[in-house]
Design a protein around this nucleic acid. Structure first.
Lengths: 244, 244
DNA sequence: TCACTGCGGTGAACGGTGTTAATGAGAAGC
DNA sequence: GCTTCTCATTAACACCGTTCACCGCAGTGA
């Protein structure tokens, strides 16, 4: 695939990669606000307008960077899942959840970009399913989705019956779960969302410092939340996984 | 109290109030990035440097605004609690939780400012317990804290025993709960944090648009989470409260 | 009434930002 | 060899936070 690219396209792709890489290094050192085109260009020995040959605007550059970051965290989650394959899907979800927190804490700025309040102008992008950020978000979501689906299919956890789900929620879950690669009860989709909310809430609060008022270190509380997730998903009896 | 202020001090206070009010109106129309000193001054028919007579920097202005917003949402939560007084503490927590989501959705930008990724430069402010933002955050936290404390004292919900709490978490909970106005078991403090994480996660995901990938409207899922909270806090049998 | 003090305001300026336009050096293609 | 297109530059516009010198004017004491 790379061989089909002309020489020009290759050096261009390399430049694009270098821009995003430089952007990221500035993101981590200076924060999202210091992520300016001029700073990127300066670091690369260029001038700012040159970057417009590669990205139509700063916003598009950020979107591309977000896409890369989703891929990175997705890779990390999948790798963590692989390493825990011997513990089955529950162990893999546990490992992926820990990896998620670990990645978020090791890459706070990046986490902000992906999961914090959306940057100005990026809020209405969700409709464009073809931009790299949305694609990355999809892939990311499907990792947790696939794990929870496998957990349910291997060993069903308690879920609400379809008729116990509020009609509007049921309708929304129906149209959403229609995109799933495997068929899953609506209740399982609802439990999936609840679990994701809990995991997100825990990690986001810790990363954003909104937990410091109570806990200097949120790690042990994260363990509590993980156990609660295991309970919701019906594998608390096999918990915790020994070799960790 | 206002009478003790000199004329000068009164007009000065009025100007400060107008500045913050103008800042807020710009925040909601332009977003956090458009909240510039020059825009505020322009809107007020002044020039930007004049604002430095009232705030030493843009950052301090934002901190003051955050303090006001915490007070506003705290007032709203307390009012909602008052209105639900007849349902007891559980009903008040339910009402306050709904009010929290309602306020967040009606004031998205403000919610971002208070509960999103901290603005650049505001991250290390937490140590200053005397700045208006930290004071506001304290008051806000104590509203939910007091409600859950009353729920527990009136009708204890299941909590982990002290010896079942991980030592590091136990130590952190001990030093934190030492600040509480009432004495509470450590397990209750832990459950409080879990509940707050869940509520925060739900509302933050909805406000930040991180739930749109699955649900066009997150309200029915919020109801599910509220019911789950009621279960955790042991009043699911009295749920939902009829007249709402 | 007078001068004085200090608060609240202005305009200019510095260095920073995203973005556009005009321009030029150099490689690619015919 | 000539054209065309890519990549980069410089200059410029409009905005930003912030600092500085300046100034009018209300309030104060002699």
């Amino acid at each position: 695939m790379a061989a089909t690219l002309s020489r020009r396209d290759r050096v261009r792709a390399a430049t694009v990669a270098e821009i995003k890489q430089t952007a990221r290094s500035i993101l981590v050192t200076e924060g999202p606000d210091g992520l300016s085109l001029r700073a990127i260009a300066r670091e690369m020995g260029m001038t700012a307008p040159a970057l417009y040959r590669y990205f139509p605007s700063r916003e598009d550059l950020v979107v591309a960077l977000i896409g890369d970051l989703y891929d990175e965290v997705s890779d990390a989650l999948e790798a963590a899942g692989e390493r825990a394959a011997k513990d089955g899907a529950p162990g893999q979800l546990d490992a992926a959840s820990r990896e998620f927190r670990g990645w978020a804490l090791a890459n706070r700025r990046e986490f902000e970009l992906l999961f914090g309040s959306p940057m100005p102008g990026l809020e209405s992008r969700d409709a464009d399913t073809d931009d790299p950020a949305s694609q990355g978000a999809d892939r990311f979501g499907q990792i947790f989705g696939a794990l929870i689906a496998r957990i349910y299919l291997d060993d069903p956890f308690p879920i609400p019956a379809d008729e116990d789900i509020a009609p509007e929620l049921r309708a929304a879950l129906e149209s959403w779960s229609a995109e799933f690669p495997v068929e899953l009860p609506l209740g399982a989709a609802q439990v999936f969302l609840s679990c994701w909310i809990q995991l997100y809430g825990m990690v986001a609060m810790e990363v954003f410092g909104h937990l410091r008022f109570a806990l200097p270190d949120a790690e042990p509380l994260f363990e509590v939340e993980l156990r609660d997730l295991a309970t919701k998903l019906g594998f608390a009896d096999r918990y915790p996984f020994p070799d960790r």
